[in-house]
Simulated assay, not measured.
Amino acid sequence: MSVLVTSTRSEPPPPAPRRTLGQRLGRWDTTISPYLYVSPFFIVFGIVGAFPLLYTAYVSLHEWNLIGGQGAFVGLDNYRNVLGQEYFWGSLRNTLSIFLLSSVPQVVFALLIAAALDADLRARTWWRMGVLVPYVIAPVAVALIFNDLFGDRYGLINQGLGALGFDPVHWHRDKLPSHLAIATMVNFRWTGYNALIFLAAMQAIPRDYYEAAAIDGAGRLRQFLSITIPSLRATIIFVVITSTIGGLQIFDEPRMFDQYGKGGADRQWQTLTLYLYDIGWGQKDFGMASAVAWLLFLLIVLIGILNFLLIRRIASKDSR
């Protein structure tokens, strides 16, 4: 009995077809084009953002004035000099006070206005455009208008208080009233802008949630607290961080609150940016001004991180 054995030899696979130049260019386009689309932003940011920031750090380590330019390397002496001045700490306290009086009510009122605009209102487009009008007005115009409102002698608010039998408020002399007046300007300009951001996020919430909650007997307030607020966690974090950055960098409103732009006779509403401006362009000491700028930058980063961690922790507790 014979067995026929055949040996089969495996044939090599056929060579892969060579890609044409057009196919290679098409693959490169798919791989590289997304980076090319976003590169203009990073290029411009590197030129007008990152480079000035790093250059400011370099300037803060030197004696530097407007006329003589770069001087000797002094290390951290500029930071020590700034931290040793009472005006710096006073400006820091004023900045934090105005920041709290503006940012916290701003976010709360923006949420309430957005909830009202999200309801079935007549002429909704008109109302939504109307809340953005204060943001379009120039900060100088806002400051001039509110200067008349908060005038010490002939201000409209003091005249109204006098008609009601109350004593006039010294808006430009006392610290807390001046902070309230400046915070009112900030809230007037930015509340509507933040309300539209919240409104856009609210409209992305599925309406089925509200219908199911209404069937279960939940009222408007319960729906707002249990559905709307938890669904806006990411947006609230974004608005809080942007409000923190803007609130700590406030400059236009306190500078235009009187005709001198120094932050008051006793610097009772001088902010860190006004203090920085006075050192840089008043005293012509760019080294110390750069040190103040970097201290302000670190303060913004620190408070931004704290806000982010706090809101994320609150959100995680609510999700449980």
Rank of each mutant, 00 (worst) to 15 (best):
A114S: 10
Y154G: 03
V186F: 13
L117M: 03
Y260A: 06
G162Q: 05
L21Q: 06
S103R: 12
L199M: 10
R80W: 14
L117A: 09
N147S: 11
W28S: 15
A293M: 04
Q249P: 06
P168Q: 10
R222M: 05
W126Y: 05
L180F: 13
L299H: 00
G155S: 07
L96C: 02
R233T: 15
V3A: 00
W28L: 15
G90Y: 07
L274W: 04
F297D: 12
D174E: 04
L83F: 02
P139F: 04
P134M: 04
T56A: 15
A218N: 08
S178Q: 02
P34G: 11
V140I: 13
D216Y: 06
Q283R: 15
L144H: 07
F308E: 09
Q23L: 12
L295S: 10
Q159N: 02
P13G: 07
R19H: 06
G90Q: 13
P14S: 12
D216H: 10
D120L: 05
L161H: 03
V136I: 11
D318H: 08
T191S: 03
D77I: 07
Q223M: 07
Y154T: 05
I314N: 08
W269V: 11
Y209V: 13
A265S: 14
I67A: 10
W126H: 10
F51C: 06
D174G: 01
E211H: 12
F224K: 14
W127R: 04
E211F: 15
L100R: 08
H170G: 11
G192M: 06
A214M: 00
R267S: 15
V44Q: 04
V186G: 08
G69S: 09
F42A: 15
I311Y: 11
V59L: 09
A204M: 05
E63D: 13
L111F: 04
F109V: 14
F257L: 02
T228F: 00
L149F: 13
R153W: 00
G130Q: 08
L61Q: 14
G264C: 03
R153N: 01
N78A: 02
L121W: 00
E253K: 06
L54F: 05
I32H: 11
A116N: 01
V240G: 03
R18E: 00
P139C: 01
G217F: 02
L144Y: 02
G247Q: 02
W127D: 10
L221A: 10
R80M: 05
